[in-house]
């Protein structure tokens, strides 16, 4: 009995510190964070922002609503479209409310709950504060947070929705950011052919298998399975004279010059054009570049110093493998689609 008591006490001690995903069961079919078995536990754990169906739905409304922009012209979805894995509509750079182009390609949005930093240079340290950049940038939505809060508080639809989701009479910026984070962190893609193969439910074709072997040898040191990124920053030799210094902008360290965050390759078939500035239009161009287009500079990643030297046939096999990362249940998931406002 005593032993049990001690054991119990110690277990309590151990579990009480574990960060757990907090889910409030508010619907009959419990709405929850679908932790894919093959992934580690997420970095974002909803600690101060308990996930609920109402909160998620509100985030979804907001994501698709141009009310968030200065002149009600664009929304998050203008630059992040579901059919493209929530990357841009296949354009290299996007226009904001000022009708001017930004300088970077809108990345795909998926599995963000596992990300430890955001943006190509990793300047943003938390998923909840990420929307502050697009919301207030004049090249994007062009609003001020103070004005946005006033605007939402005058809107009876959102007054009601925020009350349902968070029980608040007055909308504030924190709740707005919490709602958006509930939507963006729930964008989970884990059901591609690759996942089925790994789970033993189906198998690769010979060419896919060849591509997978090459991928593990040449690419996986950065595009690490199963999320297909190791979340590090690397200079992959796109240029040697940097127009965009990337990570150095954040750290001010010349050793970070030209380094960008390793992007996931899940759904990469749909997210073209590629790279931080959208300079490469298709996977053939990406593979040609990675094989023999790499430009040397002091910060170039050591694993790329001699190029990857892939034959055309090998490149093709890798492309075929990359297409096994396409997750149709993700880009077609009605839960993520533009909501219809009744």
């Amino acid at each position: 009995m005593r032993k049990i008591l001690i054991l119990f006490a110690f277990t309590l001690f151990l579990v009480s510190c574990k960060k757990e995903v907090v889910i409030s069961p508010i619907t009959k079919d419990a709405f929850r964070f679908n932790q894919p078995e093959q992934f580690s536990s997420p970095h974002y754990n909803f600690e101060n922002n308990p996930l609920t169906e109402k909160g998620f739905e509100l985030g979804r409304y907001l994501f698709y609503d141009p009310i968030l922009s200065l002149d009600s012209s664009i929304s998050c979805s203008s630059c992040h479209a579901q059919a493209h894995g929530f990357a841009d509509h296949n354009i290299p750079l996007s226009k904001g409310v000022d009708k001017k182009f930004g300088t970077r390609n809108a990345p795909a949005l998926m599995n963000l709950a596992w990300s430890t930093s955001f943006m190509w240079d990793g300047g943003v340290n938390h998923i909840e504060v990420q929307p502050l950049v697009p919301l207030t940038s004049e090249h994007e939505l062009g609003e001020t947070m103070a004005n946005l809060v006033i605007k939402l508080n005058k809107n009876s639809f959102y007054k009601k929705k925020f009350k349902e989701a968070f029980g608040v009479e007055t909308i504030n910026d924190q709740k707005l950011l919490h709602a958006l984070a509930q939507f963006t962190s729930m964008l989970i893609s884990s059901n591609a052919k690759y996942d089925q193969v790994m789970a033993g439910k189906t198998s690769f074709t010979n060419q896919e298998q060849q591509g997978y072997e090459l991928f593990k040898a040449k690419c996986a040191n950065c595009h690490t399975e199963p999320l297909f990124t190791d979340y590090s920053y690397r200079n992959t030799g796109l240029e040697s004279n940097f127009k965009d210094i990337g990570r150095e902008k954040v750290t001010q360290d010349p050793a970070d010059r030209g380094k960008f965050k390793v992007p996931t390759l899940r759904n990469v078939e749909f997210t073209y054009p590629y790279m931080h500035d959208g300079r490469l239009f298709n996977l053939e161009q990406v593979l040609t570049f990675k094989s023999n287009g790499i430009q040397d500079s002091p910060t170039l990643d050591t694993s790329l110093k001699n190029g990857l030297n892939l034959s055309k046939e090998e490149q093709q096999a890798i492309i075929v493998f990359l297409k096994t990362l396409s997750d149709y249940t993700f880009i077609g998931n009605p839960m993520y689609a533009e909501p219809v406002i009744q």
């Binding site: 101060n48 504060v129 950049v133 207030t136 954040v250």
Partner: peptide, 24 residues
């Protein structure tokens, strides 16, 4: 509080005392 996401009160983003592109 610099690494814990969205905050309220004096720490609200509406106070214009926050760098969004380099969180802090």
């Amino acid at each position: 509080r610099n690494v814990s996401g969205a905050q309220t009160g004096a720490l609200s983003s509406t106070n214009d005392m926050y760098w969004d592109w380099n969180s802090g």
